[in-house]
Design a protein around this nucleic acid. Sequence first.
DNA 1: GCAACATGTCACTATCTGGTGACATGTTGA
DNA 2: TCAACATGTCACCAGATAGTGACATGTTGC
Lengths: 120, 120
Amino acid sequence: MLTATPTDRVWRALADPTRRSLLDVLARRPHTTAELVERFPDLCRTGVMKHLDVLEEAGLLMVRREGRVRWNRMNAMPIQRIYDRWVSKHVRGMASAASRFKEHVESSHKPKTRRKGRDR
Amino acid sequence: MLTATPTDRVWRALADPTRRSLLDVLARRPHTTAELVERFPDLCRTGVMKHLDVLEEAGLLMVRREGRVRWNRMNAMPIQRIYDRWVSKHVRGMASAASRFKEHVESSHKPKTRRKGRDR
DNA sequence: GCAACATGTCACTATCTGGTGACATGTTGA
DNA sequence: TCAACATGTCACCAGATAGTGACATGTTGC
């Protein structure tokens, strides 16, 4: 992927379940790399670091070095961005499609005992 | 990825910009495969079909065959699902005020230096 | 029937991805 | 000082991914 846009890097970063898991952990509080490695026993340290690199490239992770430790902190802004720019319109679209469908069903069914209004 | 969960298939399907683009087109109305191929001149037909396969596997695409044509219709439900199950919690509790303020400023400001390309 | 058409499927390729181990470097504290 | 520690970096590997062209199959309309 030679020409990845910032948005694209976010989507790709989120595509991996391990990375989403890492973000779940980091959402609670910042962790050092060693702490994260300890929390993901299925991966070797190098593997964890690679995931962290991807997250950092996507802007989802902020790194601060402090002596010999490295603090990894989550940044949720890019998630907000993909929501605002893409997810939201398809979620809203669905809501309206669903309500159209509901209306369609209700109007074609013509329940005799029930008025068309929202009586629920 | 031998053990991909349904949710994971959705994330992976959305990771590719071409597929998100396909969904944008399909969100307006269903298209036949030939129509889609025509709309994506950079890809050969086989390439388009592969993307459609991935989308279908993820449940984002519903296919109906009608004679010799195949109608591809979008299903946004899986997007709603990943929003409900993951995106929402990371978007909520983010400085929503801050990002909305930023958006507000940007949209009312009309930046003089045009941003590089709409990056979907 | 049959030609044009839309789709399905297969084999193949280059590159990306997620993972590993080995080794190097900088930091801490006794 | 120096050993333990946390991180950085490199080379390497297997499998997934995104793309292609060639060919097969089913449909349509004249």
